[in-house]
Each structure stands twice: as structure tokens, then as C-alpha cells.
Design a protein around this nucleic acid. Structure first.
Lengths: 113, 113
DNA sequence: GTAGAGTGCTATGATTTGTCAAGCGATTGG
DNA sequence: CCAATCGCTTGACAAATCATAGCACTCTAC
């Protein structure tokens, strides 16, 4: 069992709190999960994620790139061809996705709503 | 290493997708994390979470109760005294929080913004 | 006895966040 | 030549969240 020391009472920088704030933004976890099986282009990712509009997706990947979780590679500007891939930090989030995966299969077997 | 079979291409019910949708709602993970070290009352939880306004918090805990993740116990109506505790399913989310914990300590050591 | 702080929320209106539909310049496929 | 695809951007809109105030009451302190 991990240490899980809860610093979150004082005003000090708390990485866990920060991480939760990153991951709770809409679509973020979906994006990461879909990139776990290889890099994708913008529209490809958009289709994989399903239901996220381009404006939000653009904003989200930009932020994730800024955080060092995603890496954007432009192969050619015209015709436009880009690919988004997980960095090392991004790949490491697989553990989180796996934890969610295990939890959901155990407790979410039946449709919820 | 978990199976991680990605069903998310067809329209079938996907528990992982569903779980992500639950966990990405604002404050949800903060609430769960703060309840990991014992049940709390409404205002107590509000203070622990920090920064969530009561309307949102009320809505969130209600949803989590509905999902079977939290359990609400009313000890007395007047003076009002309630407590929110994690159910078995809620406790099981500790694994997810721990995964986030490990990730954040490894990749989020320095302040981000 | 009475002021002050605490309980669990709900109501208000402002602000932030996410959404929708459309479209751009350019190339590729029929 | 016409439609489709690429990676986005724009601007108008809706939905979620925000800060703040308050209610009905009790409990402690003075």
C-alpha cells in the first residue's frame, strides 16, 4: 500500500492535487487512453475519442503538449499532416488508465444510466 | 500488465469509457481522495477539498451516491449533521488515486504553472 | 440570555468552460 | 471538375461552475 501522505491542508505545492486537476479536464483521459496504442493525427484522434469538438480538442492537446505529456510532430504543413504521441510522462499514465480499467470492470459491469 | 483490450471502436457499452466520464467530472477525484482517510460532513468535506462551491459539491456528492460510490448518512436533521463515506466501490478507487499519486510524484515534482 | 460560530444545504446572478456549425487553403481520388 | 480529407480557427451559443448570501436551527461562550 502506497504512502499516500496527505499534505493537502496547507498551501504547499501538492503534486497529487495538481495531477488531479490536469486529469479532470474534460476529454483529457480519453485522449491519453486513445493514444496508448500509437500516435494519431488530429482528426484521427478526434474520431477515436468520439464526440469532442475540434475547438476543445485543439485546446486540450495544446495544453497537454505544454505539460510534456504529449508531443506534436508536424510532418508537412501542406497538405497538413501532424501526429500526436505520448511522451514518457504520457506513457506512464497508462498505469492510471489501467487502474481505472480494473476498477470499471469490477464495479461498472452493468450500464449506469 | 493488464489486458487493456480496446473495445472503443464499436457502439457497445464500454466500462472504461464510462468510468473515465465519471472521474473526469470536476471535483470528483478530489472528493474521493479526501474521503479515503475517513468519512466527513458536508462542510468538512468542502473545506478539505478546498475551492469547490457548495452548489457544485452538493450536486457531485448526490451523483456519486447515486452511482454507489459514496454513502450519505443523516445523523440528525436539526441540528443538521450528515456524513459522507466511501462505499466498497469508492474505497476501490484508492488504487486509481494511488496510481495518480505515483505518477505525479515522478513527473510533476516541479510546479507547473 | 444573547452574541457568534457552527451545521447542511439552496438561491442568485456573474463568469468560465465547453459546444456547435461553418469554413479556410490545399491536396488527393474519382 | 467535384467531392472528400487534412489540421485546425472563428464566432455565436449553451452548459457548468463560480462567489456570495442566506435559511432554520443548535451549541458554546460570555
Amino acid at each position: 500500500m502506497a504512502n499516500l501522505s496527505h499534505d493537502h491542508g496547507d498551501h504547499a505545492f501538492c503534486p497529487v492535487h495538481e495531477a488531479i486537476n490536469i486529469l479532470q479536464e474534460k476529454w483529457t483521459l480519453h485522449i491519453i487512453r486513445n493514444l496508448l496504442d500509437g500516435p494519431k493525427g488530429f482528426n484521427e484522434l478526434s474520431r477515436a475519442v468520439g464526440g469532442c469538438n475540434p475547438a476543445t480538442l485543439a485546446q486540450r492537446v495544446e495544453k497537454l503538449v505544454g505539460l510534456g505529456i504529449l508531443e506534436k510532430t508536424v510532418h508537412s504543413t501542406m497538405p497538413p499532416r501532424t501526429s500526436y504521441a505520448l511522451t514518457e510522462a504520457g506513457q506512464a499514465l497508462q498505469e492510471v488508465v489501467e487502474a481505472i480499467d480494473r476498477w470499471s470492470r469490477r464495479f461498472l459491469k452493468e450500464p449506469v444510466a
